[in-house]
């Protein structure tokens, strides 16, 4: 632990401080969006949007290296893919007769398959692991500003639209009858999810981001009775586990993202398993 604090204070090694700052800043985003996703029961929509980003990343890398389009960055590709997937899922939800879960699965798997395809066609070797799982220790100051901007956007949205979001999550049909544009609100929610998973891609990748969106919120939901208190508690849970995960990874030399998710997963799942055995 002493080594961790030494490294943390060392001016020549900013990555640990950046990692902790990213963990704390992203807790705000996970705290606001996670409870809405959990309460609305759209974790698989978030999973589908997140995993489909691999297709955008693969295409961006292919275009960058094959056609020399240097502006085509993996981050831009991920954001475009995430927003497109959100639009597709949002549009399908409003159509009668379409099986929503099948469409979610299709977007999820087609996105990943496209990613694998384009990565294999890219003339340089790209390790997909960094995009699947991210690396909180490789974040830059710019990444931190981006996450802070995302937090500000989510805070503004939730302050202005808390009651409509609560109503839509609780009973979408009733909210629609009361005159809310529930389709637009759903699309906004999917769009914000897309933006969040794309901006947090370098930190935790396409896979782990889902755990951070859902597990702190699910833990917070065990001891809160309002959506707003669930948001505050989820942000606090997320912050505590981000700090604990980064510290643990530094002490025993394991990947930070995996450490955060494993700690969260253990605390969430163990009581669930014990409860079922009673």
């Amino acid at each position: 632990m002493a080594e961790f604090w030494q490294a943390f204070q060392d001016p020549g090694f900013p990555f640990l401080r950046y990692a902790l700052a990213a963990g704390l800043l992203s807790s705000v985003a996970f705290g606001i969006l996670g409870p809405v996703i959990v309460a609305r029961r759209i974790s698989f929509v978030a999973g589908s949007i997140s995993h489909s980003m691999l297709g955008g990343i693969g295409l961006a890398l292919f275009l960058r290296h094959q056609l020399g389009w240097s502006w085509c960055t993996p981050g831009a590709g991920a954001l475009a893919a995430a927003l497109s997937s959100a639009a597709v899922i949002g549009a399908v939800r409003t159509r009668r007769g379409e099986r929503e879960d099948t469409v979610i699965a299709a977007v999820w798997t087609v996105g990943m398959a496209a990613g694998v395809l384009f990565l294999s066609l890219t003339p340089v070797f790209v390790d997909p692991m960094s995009y699947l799982f991210g690396n909180i220790l490789l974040l830059t100051r710019n990444d931190l500003w981006m996450i802070a901007g995302l937090d500000a956007l989510l805070l503004i949205v939730v302050l202005l639209l808390y009651r409509p979001l609560l109503a839509v999550c609780f009973d979408e049909e009733f909210a629609r009858i009361r005159g809310l544009n529930t389709g637009a609100l759903s699309m906004l929610l999917f769009g914000l999810t897309a933006l969040t998973v794309a901006l947090l891609l370098p930190m935790v990748g396409t896979v782990l981001v889902i755990a951070l969106l859902t597990l702190p919120a699910a833990l917070a939901g065990r001891f809160t009775k309002h959506l707003w208190s669930m948001m505050i508690a989820a942000a606090a849970v997320s912050a505590v586990f981000a700090v604990a995960g980064v510290a643990l990874s530094a002490v025993i030399d394991i990947p930070s993202g995996a450490a955060i998710v494993l700690l969260l997963g253990a605390v969430y799942l163990i009581p669930v398993l014990l409860k079922r055995r009673r």
Binding site: G221, T224, S229
Partner: peptide, 13 residues
Amino acid sequence: QFPITALEAVLTG
């Protein structure tokens, strides 16, 4: 399991 109180649920109407 939804995180809402009785009062908040009524307010949505």
